[in-house]
Amino acid sequence: MIWLVALALSITAVTVWYMARPLARPPVSDDRERRGQLQQLRDRLLTQLNELDVEEGDRNIDKAVVGDERNRLEAELAQALRELESMGGVKKKKKTKKKAARESRRAWIVVLIVFAIVFPLSAAGLYVLNQRATLAYLMNPEGPANASVPPMVLEMVARLEKRLADQPDDLDGWLRLGRAYAVLGRTQAAEAAYARAYKLAPDEPQAIAEYAGFLYSSDPQNTEGQVYKLYSRLHQLDPDNQDALWFLGFAAYQKNDYQQALGLWERLMKRLPADSNEATHLRLIIDKTRVKLTGK
């Protein structure tokens, strides 16, 4: 009976602390507000992706619509995760409160320490029971470099891996997995996933473009080997592809073939908005290349 009373008192104390803690906190900085907004956006996007998976499994919506919506959600999620990662930890504010405020904080810390013994142990037990897939994923030696990645993201990746094990010919699934690995910083796994997608559809522009884009972003100074083959093939399939025009022009420039570089970049220039930053930057590069070509 005593332990029931103790448990009730513990729950009451934690509830009071939770409700009163905003009064003991300093004002939240703009960075923390932004972090909170990004975390809410991340959770909302993850929920929508889960719902999309359920609808796709039930075949309630068109596959093309599902693909477009998934690409949009994954792009927003990747951007949110990157921004969260770039923000890093929230800096601790300097102590500027008066002595009474400091004493009040010490009291809260004592309460937290007491209850930190009971509740984390209970939560850990539930976590082990319900998060086995995530824990197994984290045991992977090529796990994500960013420890702030939420378990829900890891579960989605693990679920996609399992799905592809059962459906190894799913092109869209391999592309999604490559994007996910890239966001998590698992470069070798991402390259393998993109290579698998390319093997399934060697003439599919999207598969070629994503694979080539990943290789180029991983090593921007390398314009030979597989990345060159991929962009050359993409240029054959889609002569107006802007990424292929830029890369092949850059590859020609590195080989001192300024004439070919100019031809590719001038073609690219015609496809860019005249007042865009990209066009301004490319115009400067073209001018410098012309100087190299003419020697004037």
Rank of each mutant, 00 (worst) to 15 (best):
R72E: 13
E278P: 10
K229T: 10
V90K: 03
F247D: 07
F214Y: 10
Q188S: 11
I113K: 04
I117Q: 02
L45C: 04
M87E: 01
V118W: 14
R283N: 14
S232E: 08
E161I: 02
R159T: 12
G249A: 06
S217A: 11
Q221S: 15
L46C: 04
D166N: 13
D238Y: 03
K292F: 09
A261D: 09
W246H: 11
A75H: 07
D243P: 11
D58T: 10
L175H: 00
K292P: 10
A261P: 09
W17H: 14
E155P: 03
L112Q: 08
A133M: 15
F247C: 08
A80I: 03
V153S: 09
E191L: 06
A24S: 02
D240G: 10
K99F: 15
A192L: 07
L248A: 10
N130D: 10
Q226T: 13
A147M: 11
P205T: 00
A101T: 14
N256P: 01
R176W: 02
P22C: 09
Q254D: 12
G125Q: 06
Q131M: 05
R35P: 00
R42M: 03
R35Y: 04
N241T: 02
L84V: 07
E210A: 05
Q221N: 13
A101Q: 11
D166G: 08
